[in-house]
Design a protein around this nucleic acid. Structure first.
Lengths: 190, 190, 190, 190
DNA sequence: CATGAATGAGATTTCATTCAT
DNA sequence: GATGAATGAAATCTCATTCAT
C-alpha cells in the first residue's frame, strides 16, 4: 500500500515536469522504486493513473472552492480569498495544480471527455465568480468601472500565469501573493 | 517548396495543440498531405523540425523586443509597449508564441541546452526590462512604491497566462489588451 | 509486396496449427522472415491480420457455394456436389478451411460480431441446403425416409470432422472423398 | 475442498469455450470465485490444472472404452456400442470430451509429449477398433464391401464432427444418436 | 486454506528513422 | 523532390507465477 503512494507521488511529479506523453511507465516505476507491472496492478493503465491523480487534485480543489465565503464578504475580499486560495494550493501541491490547469493530453482516450468538461466547468465557474465580484464592486461603487468580462479573464490569466511558474520557494509565493493582492486592489478599489 | 511550408505550418499547429511528445511524425505528414520521408528530406528529424519552428519564432520575437523604444519613452509607456507587443504577437502567431513560452520537451535531445538557455535568457531579459521600468517609475515618483521584483514577476505571469489562453478571436485580444493596460496603469501610476 | 504475402501465408499456417491465442506476432514475423513491425505496417494488428485471412477464405468459399448447381441436379447429386466441394477446398486450402470452421478466438475484439455472424450464417445455409436436398429426395421417393433435420446435421458433422483431421495427403483426401460419397449414397438412396 | 471443485469446473468450461491459450488464470479465479494463488495451492500451475482435467476425462473415457463388449457382439452392434458410448459421453460431459478431442495447446510444455501421445493412441485405438469391426462384418458377409481404412476414418470423423458441435440439448443428442446409428446401418449392413 | 501485493518474462503495439527506387 | 516498404528501439500492457502473511 505504501508502494501505491510512491507510484502516485512519482507519477505526479513526472507528469508535471515532463508532461503525460513525455513520461514513460518505466520511468515512473524506476523512480518510484517499483516494477512496471505494479503500476498495472494498482491502476488500469497509464491513462487511469493520470486520471486518478487529476481526480484527486480536482476533488481537493473543488472542496476548497466550495468553502469560499460567497455572500458575506466584501467584493474585494472575495477576490482576495480566491487569489489567496490559489496561492495556498500552489505552495502546497504545485504539481497537482499545474496538471489541473494544463490542457488534456491528446492521447488520453477520454471518451466521455470527463477531463475536458471538468476543466471547462472549472474555468467557467472561476470566470463567473470573478464577474459577480467585479459587478458587485462596481454596483456598490467601491470598484472603478472596469470592463467586467475582460477584467475577470485577466485576473484568471494572472492566476494561470503564476501556476505555470514552477519551482518557486514557499517564501517567494508568500511575497508574490501579497504583491498580487496589492496590485489588484490598487487597480480595482477606488 | 510549398510542401516544406505545409510541414512547418502543420507541425506548428500540432505541436502547440498536442505538445511535442504527443505529436507523431506520421500525424504531421498526414495532416500536411505529404509522406513521412519528406519531413526527413527537409529536416534532420522531428527534433530539428521543432527547433526550426521555435528558432523562427524566437528570431521574430527577439527582433521585435530589440525594437522596443528603451530610453526615450516614459516608464509606463515602456511597459505598455511590452504588453502591446506580446498581444500583437499572440494575435498574429498564437501557436508559435505558445510554443515559445512552453517548457522544453523532456525527450528533446538538446545536449547544449540551447533551447533551455534561450527560454531562460528571454525570461531574464523580460524580468530585467520590467524591473528597470518599474524602478524608473518609482524613482521618478510617477509609480506607486511597489515591490519591484514581485511586480515584475507578476506582470510577466499575466502575459504568460494570456498566452496560455488559446482559441481567442482577434477582437477578444484587442479588448483584453486594452483592459490589461488600463488594469496595470491604475495599479501603477499615481 | 512479396513480404506481405509471406506474412499472410505464415500467419495462416500458424493460426491453424496453434490457434490465434497460441501464436505470437514475433513467431509469425520470424517464420515469415520479416520484422515484427512490418506486420503492423501491412495490418492494423494481430486481430486485423486474422480477420483478413478469414475474410479471404470466406470470400472464396462463398463464391464456390454460390456456384453450386442448385435446381437442375438430382437430390443426391446436389449433396455430392456439396461434399465434393468441401473435399476440394480442404485439399487446396486446408488451413483456411480449418480456420473458417473453428470457433472465434475469445480475445478477438469483434464488436459487431462479424466473425460470429458469418459462421452462424454459413452453418445455417449449409443445414438449410442439406435439408432441402433430403426433403426433395424423400418427396421424389428416391431417398429412404430419414429424419431430415438430424440427417442434415449429421452430414454436416461428417464434413466438419473431416476438416478437423489435418495433415492428410492429397491422395488420402481423394479416397476419403469417394468413400464418403459411397457411404452416404448407400445410406440415403433406395 | 469445494473450492477445488469450483476451480476445476470453471476451468473446464473456460478451456472448452476459449481454448487453453485464450483463458487466463485470473479469469478462472474470478469466475470460480476464488483468488489466483488458490489455484496454485491446489495445482502446480495452469498446465497442471489443464492436464488434470484432461487426465480425469481420459480416465473415465478409457474405462468406458475398455468395457466395450469386444468379441461377443455382432460387427454392427460393436460399432453401435462405440457410437452410443460417445453420444452418452458427449451428453454427460460435453466440455471434457471437447477438450479430449482438441489438438494439444501449442504452449503447453509437455516435454514427454504425454498429451500428444495419448491423443494419438486413442485415435489409433479407435481406428483399429472400427477397422476390425468393419473387416469382420465384411468377412461375415453381413456388411457391404466397403474400403475398410477409409470407412473407419469416416465414422471417426462423424463422431469428431458431432463432438465439435457444442451447445446441443440432451434431447437433440438422443435423436442425433438414433439417426446416426440408422444412417450407418443402412450404409453398412446388407 | 487463503489472500493482497508483487514480479520476471514476454506479448502487442508505436514511432522516429532509413532504404531502395 | 518524393515515396512505399521496412526496421531498431522502445513503450504499453498482460500473464503465469510467487511471496509474505
Amino acid at each position: 500500500m505504501k508502494k501505491r503512494q510512491d507510484i502516485i507521488r512519482t507519477a505526479t511529479r513526472l507528469f508535471a515536469e515532463q508532461g503525460f506523453d513525455g513520461t514513460t511507465t518505466l520511468q515512473i516505476a524506476r523512480e518510484a522504486n517499483v516494477t512496471e507491472p505494479l503500476i498495472y496492478y494498482h491502476f488500469e493503465g497509464k491513462d487511469d493513473l493520470f486520471i486518478h491523480i487529476i481526480g484527486e487534485a480536482f476533488q481537493d480543489y473543488h472542496d476548497q472552492l466550495a468553502a469560499l465565503p460567497a455572500e458575506t464578504a466584501s467584493p474585494f475580499d472575495q477576490i482576495q480569498q480566491l487569489v489567496d486560495l490559489h496561492f495556498r494550493f500552489i505552495a502546497e501541491k504545485p504539481d497537482e495544480v499545474f496538471l489541473g490547469f494544463s490542457p488534456c493530453p491528446a492521447k488520453l482516450k477520454d471518451p466521455d471527455r470527463v477531463f475536458a468538461k471538468n476543466i471547462d466547468k472549472k474555468n467557467k465557474w472561476l470566470i463567473s465568480y470573478l464577474k459577480k465580484c467585479l459587478q458587485n464592486g462596481i454596483d456598490e461603487k467601491v470598484f472603478h468601472e472596469v470592463p467586467v468580462a475582460e477584467t475577470a479573464q485577466l485576473i484568471l490569466a494572472l492566476i494561470h500565469g503564476i501556476i505555470r511558474q514552477r519551482g518557486l520557494k514557499a517564501d517567494a509565493y508568500k511575497h508574490l501573493n501579497a504583491a498580487s493582492i496589492d496590485f489588484c486592489r490598487r487597480s480595482l478599489v477606488k
